[in-house]
Design a protein around this nucleic acid. Structure first.
Lengths: 198, 198
DNA sequence: TCCTCATGTGAATGCTTATTCACATAAACC
DNA sequence: GGTTTATGTGAATAAGCATTCACATGAGGA
């Protein structure tokens, strides 16, 4: 029989497996059987650790949240300059998405958008939290004088997301042919020039 | 019995019904029964006009393409100024999405992203076609001297999409609380200033 | 060593849903 | 009006999949 492991360990394994499967097969292709297989269990065993498939999706959302906020922490270490921090965050974000296509997928997916309103709210909270972090970097830049202070940080933070999203989608839809990293780099130059103090 | 109608008429009805249902219930909630009900038929009758559910999705994609390109045609009539055309296109686009949430939903959906590679390619073609139209407006602006000609139109066109997408997603995830139109308007100001000739 | 409890198993259940098919009927054409 | 053909109907099929449950077993404490 499969080795027995604690519920925290299993929950983590399950969430990771689900995220990885979402990337490979999409939400439609995510079923309990595949998740179980991935970690060497039998489908019913999953239910020892999660009450339902929906709960697994919530766990996946939290995993994504961790990774996004982890990126924010990292760029604070990597550079003291706010504009540079944003650039680094952009590059980390695009890498995160390229390594894990599931992220935009689950975020835009109707399972989250239409399902339990609480889960939808949770997702909104995650995105808002990330936006708040971006805003914070922008505000610091404004205080330092490197970023134009006539701009609304909240608006600019959403625009920042807009540098990444369409590139990520084109990359995915084109089956990897679209040069997302190049697009984001070029777009960053234009964006950066627009928000930097003249 | 239900009145009998030609296949072209039915195909159009079915595609429209599917688009509308996608907006209301998401892809998961789109089933043949609901589509049939919406146009007063019985599920099996759908198969007189489409070989499979997948074919219906393709028809929906084509409907979306029509509407996007229709917007482009319209703004050419509405203004002779390229920057103004872009602004109008942006506003039309956000309105299209607000009236029809299904559009981002189906575009980002894994049914399209992971299914038949041909369908994925079709979607890429649609987005590319729209981008080409935006690029064309940008190029005209460059020739006229209203838009900076040191910018790559392709890059800027993707950025243009980026003005809309995150706003649309936040609007959807927040259940309509996020002010997408306001965000897009404010973002447009910043974007416009960045690409206009100084 | 034994007990107990959390974890793993395999089979069964039940629901949803796409798809098919034999049959029915409206409409177009002669 | 009769014939033909495309379109609509209702029932049946079958597959996929989440979830449950009675039972089995490993691991840690007494």
């Amino acid at each position: 029989m499969t080795k027995k492991l604690g519920t925290q360990v299993r929950q983590d394994q399950i969430a990771r497996a689900a995220l990885s499967l979402l990337a490979a097969h999409g939400l439609q292709g995510l079923n309990i059987e595949r998740v179980a297989q991935r970690i060497g269990m039998v489908p019913s065993a999953i239910y020892r650790h999660f009450k339902s498939k929906d709960e697994i999706l919530v766990a996946v959302l939290e995993l994504i949240e961790q990774r996004l906020l982890g990126n924010v922490q990292a760029v604070y270490q990597e550079s003291p300059d706010c504009l540079e921090r944003l650039r680094l965050l952009l590059m980390r974000h695009i890498r995160l998405i390229r390594e894990n296509e599931a992220i935009p997928r689950i975020i835009f997916s109707e399972a989250v958008g239409f399902g339990d309103p609480a889960r939808r709210a949770r997702l909104y909270g995650i995105i808002e939290g990330y936006l708040k972090q971006v805003e914070e970097i922008l505000r610091r830049g404004q205080r330092e004088g490197t970023i134009r202070d006539d701009l609304d940080p909240a608006t600019v933070a959403v625009m920042f997301l807009g540098l990444i999203q369409p590139a990520a989608i084109l990359w995915h839809v084109s089956a990897g042919r679209f040069d997302a990293t190049g697009q984001v780099s070029r777009a960053w130059e234009i964006f950066c020039e627009a928000i930097r103090t003249k």
